[in-house]
């Protein structure tokens, strides 16, 4: 009986703004994307926009998106884990300040940060100028997938560091001591205790880096010089240049499947709802 209790008017009023927000900015847009994705210009139902993914251009873009996102995620993970460990274990009183410093660039506009990489990597950019000055051959990075990975890693690495740092800093030091006490050396302690216990952080980090990498179009646009098309760029073109919302929505739905799969896998590892997510 009790759980059938009706909510008071006050409670309904308080929930109101959230409901309006969620309906207006989440439910309706999502519904529109599904609607556009599954209809053609005359409004009739079709799978065409979805199956368009199988065209050579789109498949190539999808494959490149997945490939670069995976590379970016792996690079972020490899760079972040040791750093997060150092931050979490440092006896410095201001280790949280140090962690904060890594987040600080995020306060700058993402486009600016990416444009900064453009000036660094350009053929006549900062790096090549220095290389020429000291008599070394110049390198050609800009407008290649490598440049895009640079940009992605730089933009998304804080999303990997933070959740891993959060998990490691909360680890009971006595749990690590217990492993040492029971005979484990430093490597065994890391592999058998620290690493397994930090998996929730790693999974959150992977999700939070992989998903935006997969859908980015700004970074690939700036650092790829519009020559390298990721699926995000194709979707952007469909909406803006081709003005074909149906095709754009269809491809978005395909991308959403990948994201949902990533989310499902990650939620599986976050037991107790004790998520290390920063989102």
């Amino acid at each position: 009986m009790k759980n059938k209790k009706r909510h008071s008017l006050g409670q309904l009023l308080l929930a109101g703004p959230y409901t309006v927000w969620m309906v207006g900015f989440i439910v309706i847009p999502l519904f529109l994307i599904v609607y556009y994705g599954l209809t053609n210009k005359s409004g009739a139902f079709t799978w065409e926009n979805i199956t368009a993914i199988t065209s050579a251009v789109n498949m190539k873009a999808l494959w490149l998106s997945v490939e670069l996102s995976v590379i970016c995620t792996v690079v972020c993970l490899v760079l972040s884990y040791p750093l997060a460990m150092i931050l979490a274990n440092s006896k410095m009183k201001n280790s949280s300040l140090t962690a904060f410093l890594f987040i600080l660039p995020m306060w700058m506009n993402a486009l600016l940060r990416t444009l900064a990489w453009l000036t660094l990597l350009e053929n006549n950019g900062v790096i090549n100028t220095i290389l020429t000055k000291i008599g070394l051959p110049t390198i050609h990075i800009i407008n290649t997938p490598t440049a895009i990975v640079f940009g992605m890693v730089y933009n998304y690495i804080p999303f990997m560091i933070l959740p891993i740092y959060n998990v490691l800093v909360k680890l009971d030091k006595n749990v690590i001591n217990a492993a040492r006490d029971l005979g484990a050396n430093a490597v065994q302690t890391f592999l058998r205790v620290i690493l397994p216990l930090s998996i929730p952080g790693i999974i959150s980090g992977i999700t939070m880096v992989f998903v935006p990498s997969l859908t980015t179009f700004a970074i690939s646009d700036i650092l790829g010089g519009s020559k390298i098309l990721l699926l995000g760029n194709i979707i952007e073109q469909k909406f803006k240049t081709a003005n074909n919302w149906h095709a754009g929505s269809g491809l978005s739905l395909v991308l959403m499947v990948f994201i949902i799969v990533t989310m499902v896998i990650s939620s599986h590892y976050e037991k107790d709802g004790e998520s290390a997510n920063v989102w």
Partner: peptide
């Protein structure tokens, strides 16, 4: 000598079990 090379064991405050 590091803890893992000592022939003694510890029972920690708040147990410090491996929760995984």
């Amino acid at each position: 000598l590091p803890p893992n090379q000592r022939d003694l064991n510890t029972v920690f405050q708040k147990y410090a079990l491996f929760t995984h």
